[in-house]
């Protein structure tokens, strides 16, 4: 049990996590009905990372996300109907349907965008941190990426420059153990990601990403150090994507036994358990979950009803 987080805060965090789960499950349903185009990368099982980190940040801290970004978007508190609308290609979406799941930005919420290129957001967050430092802001940039992205040159280059220049950026690696089908054991020679931090004279930590309270706590501490000008840090959160990499993934690279075992560490179950241990009633927990699911259902309805753009929306707006 965590003293830094009140029971009502934790209940709120739980509600956010459920809304992310419900969002992903709703999308999955929309795909099977043919109501969504392209693909999507769900974060089912990883909700605690998004909510734990972002709840520890200020609203004015800048976020950069990756291809698996729905959790980050909802954890920041974006309008769910507008996120859903973006994925459906509707004008009501944050980017009018031009961006979709992997290219969704909300500047008014300090959300610099999800990013469809693995590792592509890492230098962008570093550049945002450069601008924050240049303008003597005390806000911080937070870059979310996965274990797969940590093998891109941009990870190594950006960590190096961020450390050289003591930029206010927190690098958050959500290590869900697989880069698409490739397990970390086959892709990352160092085994874990955080051990790479000292190579860039940077502080790095690896934590259990299933525990939203722990994630919140370690992120708060890291952000305080980064904000104080002590330089960037690398926070690795061990997590697990319970679903496939994207919508068409039969998950042939791992066993159902492994999945069942990891599902015991489902962050929603763990958080509900913690809430009960704190004395929150099952009734209140269920009510929070139900409210989250209703929010998502209403958002999906609103997004479905919104209009899509026309020719002028496709062919205009290339340049400012």
């Amino acid at each position: 049990m965590n003293d830094l987080i009140s029971s009502s805060d934790l209940l709120h965090m739980y509600q956010r996590m459920v809304s992310i789960r419900a969002f992903e499950e709703t999308l999955s349903g929309l795909f099977s009905k043919g109501l969504l185009g392209g693909t999507s990368h769900f974060c089912i099982g990883q909700e605690s990372c998004a909510v734990g980190v972002i709840s520890a940040a200020r609203e004015s801290d800048w976020l950069v996300s990756n291809h698996r970004g729905h959790g980050h978007l909802l954890a920041r508190g974006l309008d769910i109907a507008r996120v859903m609308g973006e994925l459906m290609g509707k004008l009501s979406g944050y980017c009018g349907g031009r961006g979709g799941s992997q290219h969704l930005c909300a500047m008014d919420r300090c959300f610099l965008g999800t990013n469809g290129i693995t590792g592509g957001g890492i230098p962008i967050a570093t550049g945002a941190a450069l601008a924050l430092k240049y303008r003597k802001s005390d806000n911080v940039a937070i870059a979310f990426f996965g274990d797969g992205a940590s093998n891109q040159g941009t990870f190594h280059e950006s960590l190096n420059m961020a450390s050289l220049w003591k930029l206010p950026v927190l690098f958050v690696c959500e290590n869900n153990l697989y880069g698409m089908s490739n397990p970390v054991s086959k892709s990352c020679a160092s085994g874990t990601i955080a051990v790479r931090a000292p190579a860039y004279a940077m502080h790095g930590e690896t934590h259990d990403g299933f525990d939203v309270e722990l994630v919140h706590e370690v992120t708060s501490a890291a952000l305080a150090r980064v904000r104080a000008g002590q330089g960037p840090e690398l926070l690795e959160l061990i997590t697990y994507r319970q679903c496939g990499h994207s919508k068409n993934d039969a998950r042939v690279y791992r066993s159902r036994e492994e999945e069942a075992h990891m599902a015991e560490r489902d962050c929603l179950l763990l958080t509900a358990k913690s809430l009960r241990q704190r004395g929150v009633s099952q009734e209140d927990i269920d009510a929070a979950a139900e409210a989250a699911r209703q929010d998502v259902a209403a958002a999906a309805e609103a997004a479905l009803a919104a209009p899509a753009g026309g020719r002028e929306h496709a062919l205009d707006g290339l340049f400012a």
């Binding site: 800048w62 592509g120 230098p123 550049g127 450069l130 601008a131 240049y134 040159g153 280059e157 220049w165």
Partner: peptide, 28 residues
Amino acid sequence: AERLWETPISENSFVGIAVGAAMMGLRP
């Protein structure tokens, strides 16, 4: 050094850094 950011040999990332800084209102 505040105006001239001399970089290591990391072209993709320092162009990406310029993108991020530009999104935040600088003119790199």
